[in-house]
Write a protein that binds this DNA or RNA. Structure first.
Lengths: 194, 194
DNA sequence: CTTCTTTATGCAACTTGTTGCACAAGGCGC
DNA sequence: GCGCCTTGTGCAACAAGTTGCATAAAGAAG
């Protein structure tokens, strides 16, 4: 499980409350590890119980509805450092569009082209967003180690979007070609291979 | 949820038993949608109950330990066709290595370089495997619609591995550079930016 | 014929992630 | 003061995925 480590990283970057973490996950960390506020609160509770983090002493004892900030304890930092070097195999992707393309091979491509075009637009928008972040946050040189590593992660996001855009363009062309072939079939009859 | 549709696709390609499906998932479909035999058996039960598939009548009434083959019914095929055209947004990736790189920004890169190299080797091996499949199954032209779509899916796998290999090479170089910088610091003292 | 292995199906418990909602405190408008 | 919105924490139920194990039949090994 990686969520606790994502939370420890975020808290080391800056001590925060549950809701603040949720917002930060929505922005930066969530681009490659998303989490809802429920998951985050649950995990914060576990981390506090296990002694990896602790609540910062606030003006009054926090009850329900009161902000509660956390900071990482040395034990939590050690766990995170150990996790960074841990051996863990990459997991295969899980993408429904690939699955749907395969399904289209047996039930037909009806409606798939529109969905491919829609995904293409979404990935192009995401790429533009990443590029804007890159220009804003990593414009000139003279960066710290943490900055260079964050930039590296961002470049993974950028390259990944580029991969999707390239592949989706191929897919769109292929689907258009199949459609043209199918239209020809209705005029001339199916080819011998069908 | 996509697993039932993955199973319907596999069963349309060829009626199978639970264990056969598991093996086929391990080979081809599992490259982008993996599933354990438990998930598959559970889902087969649900699909049979909902009338999307049915057990093929075998030599005797199958009990526990006896092979039980399924085929897709028209209702299941219709559901699958509707799913192919469904609007569904792409989900962001979840990759622990990216997360660990980010964590390394706050706790140090100790041990990460070895893990990056290991992943690089794994992705190179996976790429070689995909390329072998491509040559074996999609060598010459004259392909059916289903074949062309399967090839398209395989090319996504190939391009994705290429993306990882390219990015991991960049990451390895960056980590080596950071390590060299840190080594220099121990001799000359940290730079003013630290 | 008994035991062991392989093939095959499946239950139960657990972990992880999602969805919907409840509840508390504080600020704002009137 | 009273209603309402925002901020903030959290429970409960569900859905999806994982792990470990139980069970049954069939064939091979002795």
């Amino acid at each position: 499980m990686s969520l606790p480590y994502a939370i420890l990283t975020a808290l080391l970057e800056k001590p925060s409350s549950g809701l603040e973490l949720t917002r930060r996950f929505d922005k930066s960390i969530g681009y490659f590890w998303s989490a809802t506020h429920q998951q985050i609160y649950r995990e914060l509770g576990k981390l506090e119980e296990s002694g990896a983090i602790r609540a910062l002493p606030g003006p009054r004892q926090p009850t329900r509805g009161q902000k509660k900030e956390y900071e990482v304890l040395p034990a939590g930092r050690d766990e995170l450092a150990a996790w960074v070097a841990r051996i863990e195999d990459p997991k295969p992707i899980r993408d429904t569009l690939l699955l749907r393309l395969r399904a289209a091979g047996v039930v037909g491509t009806e409606g798939l082209e529109a969905e491919v075009r829609r995904h293409l637009a979404l990935h192009r928008a995401q790429l533009a967003e990443y590029r804007a972040i890159e220009e804003r946050d990593f414009g000139e040189g003279g960066k710290s180690e943490a900055d260079r590593l964050r930039h590296l992660v961002l470049r993974a996001g950028i390259d990944l979007e580029r991969f999707w855009i390239g592949w989706l363009e191929t897919a769109r062309a292929e689907l258009a070609d199949l459609r043209a072939g199918a239209a020809a079939d209705t005029r001339t009859g199916p080819p011998a291979t069908a």
